[in-house]
């Protein structure tokens, strides 16, 4: 038993660790870069590749591997911010690039309404669902600023995709019947509340 463990330890070489890091984070990091760059494929791939290589070089010395995903995204953000240049990728190509990730037209419009920093906050919080501490790492901001950035980004996204949030009544946005995890959660709570009320009523 002990000899088997020793064999396993001997197989974990720095090279294999770097390879594992690459496969574990590579695709999602690239997707993150595509989202925050709004489909700028070339810029996203370059930034993700550089950040990934930087992460691979430190793969053997990570003190908090559970934070590696946030750390490597934090390497992407400044690279993309530095390489920010006038938009040379047309919207159609961007939509096609993001469609491969499952971004439909309405979500694309919502993402396009955000500036770069707001998009980073929105993608990290609402799409990748990072913990607040990780989002702070990605944004390089404190808790309060991070909270404000997330809320502002969600409000902006919502105003574009679902219309003004304070508006009561029918929404001009289509797809209101689209039900995901959030919709199911709200419906179940509402059903429990209503069934309980009926039970009380008929009791």
């Amino acid at each position: 038993m002990q000899s088997q463990a020793t064999d396993a330890e001997q197989q974990v070489t720095p090279e294999s660790l770097r390879e594992a890091f690459r496969h574990l984070h590579g695709s999602r990091l690239h997707g993150f870069a595509l989202l925050v760059s709004l489909g700028d494929a070339r810029r996203a791939e370059r930034a993700a590749s550089e950040a990934l290589a930087s992460g691979e070089a430190r793969a053997t010395s990570l003190r908090h591997p559970e934070r590696a995903a946030a750390w490597v995204r934090a390497q992407v953000v400044p690279r993309m911010r530095r390489s920010h240049r006038p938009d040379r990728t047309d919207a159609a190509a961007r939509r096609v690039a993001l469609r491969g990730l499952g971004v439909d037209e309405a979500a694309y419009d919502g993402l396009a309404a955000l500036d770069f920093d707001a998009r980073v906050a929105f993608v990290a919080s609402s799409i990748e669902r990072f913990a607040p501490l990780d989002i702070e790492t990605i944004l390089g901001a404190g808790p309060a600023a991070t909270h404000r950035a997330i809320e502002r980004a969600r409000r902006r996204y919502l105003s574009v995709v679902a219309g003004p949030p304070e508006r009561d009544g029918p929404s001009p946005s289509a797809g209101a019947d689209l039900e995901g995890e959030l919709g199911r959660r709200v419906r179940m709570v509402a059903e429990r509340a209503l069934s309980g009320a009926r039970s009380a009523e008929f009791a």
Partner: peptide
């Protein structure tokens, strides 16, 4: 319901669908 749907759209977004960068 529209707001819920707007956020539920994001559930179909999968960053992991991207390729590993070269």
């Amino acid at each position: 319901r529209a707001s819920i749907a707007a956020f539920d759209r994001l559930e179909f977004v999968d960053p992991g669908a991207a390729t590993i960068p070269s």
